[in-house]
């Protein structure tokens, strides 16, 4: 239910953005990252992808603030939290793919410095077919649950 609610909320939030950017391709909305807590050696970035073209795949990301950005998925089975690295995230036409806490996320490692609440950073997403998309990611509080 939480996921559905979140998706519904993100859909509602994403709708005006969709109206503003009618160009085909991949639309990225609601990007955010949590400020690093303490030593801050890793961070997660979340956003919603909507593919306005043919089926595609998010294959990677890069940002000046981190040495590496990896596609990850947190899963839970029998009360154990696992995190696995994904080579790509599949995108279906006109379908929202939501990266959110506790699920799909972009993990940043090798941070050049801590991510502080209120700062923004640039992130470039690369796809199997569509042109790369560069976006600005706002950094929210370490305890933020979403934008």
């Amino acid at each position: 239910m939480t996921y559905l609610t979140l998706t519904a909320v993100l859909l509602l939030l994403a709708t005006p953005a969709a109206a503003q950017t009618p160009a085909p391709g991949i639309e990225v909305s609601q990007p955010w990252a949590r400020a690093t807590a303490g030593a801050g050696r890793s961070a997660a970035v979340y956003f919603t992808l909507r593919d306005h073209g043919a089926a595609d795949r998010l294959t990677g990301a890069s940002t000046p603030v981190a040495g590496m950005a990896m596609l990850h998925e947190s899963t839970e089975s029998n009360g154990v939290a696992h995190m696995r690295m994904l080579n790509a995230i599949e995108l279906l036409p006109e379908h929202d793919t939501v990266l959110r806490p506790g699920g799909l996320h972009l993990m940043l490692t090798g941070l050049n410095g801590p991510l502080r609440q209120g700062q923004t950073f640039s992130l470039t997403l690369t796809f199997a077919h569509a042109a790369p998309v560069t976006l600005t990611v706002p950094v929210l509080a370490p305890g933020a649950a979403g934008p």
Partner: peptide, 17 residues
Amino acid sequence: YTFCPDVCPTTLTTVAA
């Protein structure tokens, strides 16, 4: 663990709230 980027911050956020 603190290097955990997703699940641990999410849980601690929920606990704090």
